[in-house]
Amino acid sequence: MGYFVFLLGSLAAIWFGLSGMTKPLILAFGAVSVILSAILAYRFDILDRESSPYARLPQLAAYWAWLVVEIFKANWIVIKACLRSNLDINPALVKVKTVCESDLAKTVFANSITLTPGTVSVAVEGDKILVHALYEEEAGPGAFDEMDRRSRLASDGRSKA
């Protein structure tokens, strides 16, 4: 039930943010479309903690803020690599073992790796993620440990490593 209510709330917020109108007729259309979408989501059987993670929203938002800072740091390296007059890169394929257990935590972790410039997650098999990195030094052992720990903490809420 909480999932349903959270989905309704976020859909209504998206609708109002995109339209910004307060005429009664338009608001009624908005309410109808929000409720229809929520019923569709229920019929598709995708209402679970992955599609509306309301309980973990503050932690996920905090993780997001940390990630944006990391992304800007990593951007700088790739920008320098793009602009160097003679090409100097050291690409590598690395297997990273993750401590994340649930699908949500794994998704968050793999997407964070992809979002950070310089590293792309190529394939996920069980608890190992195949990562392609622009510089081998950037993806050495232990390079992803903190991101791993934080994404697990944010999406599962258990802190033991």
Binding site: L115, P117, H132
Partner: peptide
């Protein structure tokens, strides 16, 4: 694969 990294600069920063 290396081009993918360059494209992600556009996608993020």
């Amino acid at each position: 694969y290396t081009r993918l990294h360059a494209a992600s600069v556009t996608d993020t920063a």
